[in-house]
Nucleic acid binder design. Sequence first.
DNA 1: CTGTTAGCGCCTTCAA
DNA 2: TTGAAGGCGCTAACAG
Lengths: 356, 356
Amino acid sequence: LERYKPSTGRRPTIHDVAREAGVSVSTVSNWLSGRKHLLRPRTREAVAEAAERLGYRPSGLARGLRGQSTRVVGLIVPSITNPSIPVIVRGAEDRAREAGYSLFLSNIDRQWDLAVDHSLAMIDKGVDGIAFAFALTGVSGAVLEATSRAGVDVAFLVPRGDVLEGERSVTLDNEGAMRQLVEHLWRLGHRCIGFASNAAATANSGHRLDGLRVALEERSTEVYAVYEDPVAFDHRDDWGEIESGRRSALVLLARPRRPTALCAVNDMMAVGLIRGAHELGLQVPEDVSIVGFDDLSIARVVQPALTTLAVPGYQIGHRLMEVLVGTAENEPNRFTPTLVVRESTGPAPTTRSLDP
Amino acid sequence: LERYKPSTGRRPTIHDVAREAGVSVSTVSNWLSGRKHLLRPRTREAVAEAAERLGYRPSGLARGLRGQSTRVVGLIVPSITNPSIPVIVRGAEDRAREAGYSLFLSNIDRQWDLAVDHSLAMIDKGVDGIAFAFALTGVSGAVLEATSRAGVDVAFLVPRGDVLEGERSVTLDNEGAMRQLVEHLWRLGHRCIGFASNAAATANSGHRLDGLRVALEERSTEVYAVYEDPVAFDHRDDWGEIESGRRSALVLLARPRRPTALCAVNDMMAVGLIRGAHELGLQVPEDVSIVGFDDLSIARVVQPALTTLAVPGYQIGHRLMEVLVGTAENEPNRFTPTLVVRESTGPAPTTRSLDP
DNA sequence: CTGTTAGCGCCTTCAA
DNA sequence: TTGAAGGCGCTAACAG
């Protein structure tokens, strides 16, 4: 007379469903695994109904332990509070979810060696793969060893020319970005160009500077001045990076021969550069042109609106995950930021010669 | 002669360690679980050495299946690309990690009903608890039923006065915030105040407006104009919200009796309000005062610098997780934003009477 | 088509 | 102090 009731507080298991439906566990398992053609319609219905009635949900833990896949992937980001990152996370999560994966998130706050620990922790939890929203350097050996031993896939965001560039990676083409930028600045007459980064320098910082160097060398020029502000700042607050940019401007614009253009490693630094320039009584872009990188919304809000290199963050995150969970074959995995010209760049103040 | 080798490609298990150390699995298990007093020193060493040699790491999956805890918690956020959220994630992750937990992240992109699915998915993966970086409305019943059935803890970020306010929640005191704001505006002579929000309205939006209402009612006044911009925008790009603010300004400032102050539901909207005001040829704050909410870095960069209510996002995220994984007893779980006065607020243009 | 069974790696009695 | 055994929920043979 009394309806079957799962023992109080316990989640119904595949056994409960089998009993309720009057079939065996393997039948239920087959049903669960989509091998529905193995069940006769009546059975199928009975199982579906029983599962529904019991509110049955398969245990991911047990499936993961038994089978090979947990349908979980990890995503390790350099710094979640870096404003260029969340949209990458968003792209990655969207693609992961599309493919039926859940996302483990891990923030290493620019402490690169934490990537190893966090990877191991994820492996212990049984992830099927790990995406790194940055290029591993130094610790890549340890990570790669751990992941390959555990048989988990990886995907990296690497700069152009990286040894890892290829299938398991998405390339951010800093070089191509800087080339566009130099073309723009050169046309405006700029010949004396500085570069500003800071203590939180990632691999990107170096590669953007390199890109600038290469593009200028093609025009037989070199980067006039480079400043890496050494002051550490709290990444929980963007303001620190703006301040860092301000300080950099004070240093770079105090050089005997003043640069006519300053490139920042990112938009936050560039906003700071503008503030620093203003502090020195210089007009942007009349006295000095300033360029950012990322194209955050702040780039349009600051005055003057910032000329910058727009990074397709969402697509990068999406593709990064595609590499991991999809069948990214013959996909163009290289993303080149595009130059967005606004008001912070203009003709070089003393135009010596437009055709050297 | 040949040293023991784990069968190729297989992770070493507790059995491998036991065999390698010449002890039984339960001994290794005791060692793993920190019950080291049960082992004699020599055994302890042998086990440690064997584990080390094999590169043994316990399987979280098996532990989760066997025991009750997976040491994983979920965090569901309304929108990871909303700039006020990442710092909350950061706070939550820091606290979770401190307590030895990994973090499942899930973004519902303001589709509130997704909270149920995502909660269920997390429960299936065996999380020990779920933190919601927003107040559940409408679907709270389904979520609560699922979590309580599965025995997983929950923590919510709720507005003041919410039914869930209490142990399992952290309160964002929008009301107290708006009270400070009204005091500030009132002192400046503002009597005609508008409020702007948008189509992505969260519960916060309503509660901030309510807070404004209540604070004004205490002064026998009411909110003069409210506009909720209906245009949906892509949350992958903050610019949409700024545009939304711009549109709102055009509407609100076109009222026959022009408001002397506009409050925005957040800083992005406020930035848009400023742009809209400028577009109408109005000066901020001379012709109209504008106030934001959140205190993002953009608030200091926009011109004029924005008066806003600073939300302690990191602490909120940290405490939210504390509620879940810590022993948050007698902790003050209510966070009241603090007013930061900058340049976007000033005396009301036509000061009728300062003491009504 | 359906049922039985042997583990996946670990923890926890219970005995020795 | 250590060892043997059972089972967490599920899947994948294999047997009917």
